[in-house]
Amino acid sequence: MTRETRSLPAHAPGAVDTPFVIKGYDEVVTHDTLWDAHSHPFHELLWNERGASSAVVGERVWTITPALGLWMPAGTLHSGSAAAGTWFRASFFGFRTTSSISDTPVAVEITPLLRLLLERLGEPGLAASSRAATEALVLDVLAPSPRELLVQVPTSGLLRPIADAVREDPGDRRTLADWASELGVSTRTVTRAFSTETGTSFVRWVATVRAQHAIGLLTRGWDVESVAEQVGYRSASAFGVAFRRTTGLTPGTFRPDYFTP
């Protein structure tokens, strides 16, 4: 399949005049698409109408879905990717007309109310008074989410082989002890390194990588049983428990028909 790479400029916050309060954009990508590192002069809320995409800031990788979006503060250098068929949406927030909800990228739950308000802003012929009222409501309900689909990718020579293997094949079932033996170190050494570099344990890190990969498959219509097998779980029920523990949501939340009116 054809892959498209897009290059965008890197702008400092407010470097370009953005007199609007909230401005929407959406697109269905027809090819697997990569966005090179860039930054915007405005704040941005990324979410999807259909499919899953990713955003990368440094060594942090977020998964963006119809249920969980990502707030990107103005001036934050980031890259991204989306599979063919993804319908992504973006809401741009004027740097001088709105305040950022966070100084760093942060997940945002796309609630039914927030979705309706953002969709209303896209209605043609919306009266100025109605737009102002709707924008005020968006800013009122917009808030960071305690849930986020974020993986901090370790870069040390010790952990990089593990990170590369698991991200390449989330179904890899090697345990912490297996990896320690392969690398010729103690399990305590690997445990400490994961905690230091990722802020979480090996088990939780692997579960998050698997959840990110699973979401990509679920949003493309894969059934739960097939996804569970693909990402290394022995049963759909075991996958469901791990997925809910990691994301706070059920796998069914990310099925395409979940968002069909």
Score class of each variant (00 low, 15 high):
Arg3Leu: 11
Glu4Gly: 04
Ser7Pro: 00
Ser7Trp: 10
Leu8Ile: 06
Leu8Lys: 12
Ala10Gly: 13
Val21Gln: 02
Val21Ala: 02
Lys23Gly: 08
Lys23Gln: 13
Gly24Trp: 05
Tyr25Val: 09
Tyr25Asp: 12
Asp26Ile: 05
Glu27Ala: 13
Val29Asp: 02
Asp32Cys: 04
Trp35Cys: 04
Trp35Arg: 06
Ala37Asp: 14
His38Cys: 07
Pro41Asn: 04
Pro41Gly: 03
His43Trp: 01
Ser54Ile: 13
Val56Asn: 12
Gly58Ala: 08
Gly58Arg: 08
Val61Leu: 15
Trp62Ala: 06
Thr63Tyr: 09
Met72Gly: 00
Met72Arg: 01
Pro73Asn: 00
Ala74Asp: 00
Ala74Cys: 00
Gly75His: 00
Gly75Lys: 00
Leu77His: 08
His78Ile: 06
His78Lys: 08
Ser79Arg: 07
Ser81Asn: 14
Ala82Tyr: 09
Ala84Thr: 05
Ala84Lys: 02
Thr86His: 02
Trp87Arg: 12
Phe88Met: 11
Ala90Tyr: 01
Ser91Thr: 10
Gly94Ala: 01
Phe95Gly: 00
Ser100Asn: 00
Ser102Phe: 02
Pro105Leu: 03
Pro105Glu: 02
Val108Lys: 02
Ile110His: 03
Thr111Tyr: 07
Leu113Thr: 15
Leu113Gly: 08
Leu118Thr: 04
Leu118Cys: 04
Gly125His: 12
Ala128Met: 14
Ser129Ala: 15
Arg131Asn: 07
Arg131Gly: 07
Ala132Met: 13
Ala132Val: 12
Leu139Arg: 03
Leu139Ser: 02
Asp140Cys: 10
Ala143Thr: 14
Ser145Lys: 10
Arg147His: 15
Leu149Val: 05
Val151His: 06
Val153Ser: 08
Val153Pro: 07
Pro154Gly: 04
Ser156Trp: 06
Leu158Thr: 03
Leu159Arg: 02
Val166Asp: 05
Arg167Asn: 08
Arg167Val: 07
Glu168Trp: 12
Asp169Phe: 06
Asp172Gly: 09
Ala180Lys: 03
Ser181Lys: 15
Leu183Ile: 05
Gly184Glu: 11
Val185Leu: 03
Val185Thr: 08
Arg188Phe: 10
Arg188Glu: 14
Arg188Val: 12
Thr189Gln: 11
Thr191Glu: 05
Thr191Arg: 06
Phe194Asp: 00
Glu197Phe: 07
Thr200Gly: 01
Thr200His: 03
Thr200Arg: 03
Val203Phe: 13
Trp205Leu: 06
Ala207Pro: 13
His213Pro: 02
Ala214Phe: 06
Leu217Cys: 08
Leu217Ser: 06
Gly221Lys: 10
Trp222Asn: 09
Trp222Phe: 14
Asp223Trp: 06
Ala228Lys: 04
Val231Leu: 03
Val231Ile: 11
Gly232Met: 05
Arg234Ala: 14
Ala236Gly: 10
Phe239Asn: 07
Gly240Glu: 13
Ala242Gly: 09
Ala242Lys: 07
Phe243Trp: 11
Thr246Tyr: 11
Thr246Asn: 11
Pro251Tyr: 01
Gly252Cys: 06
Arg255Trp: 13
Pro256Leu: 09
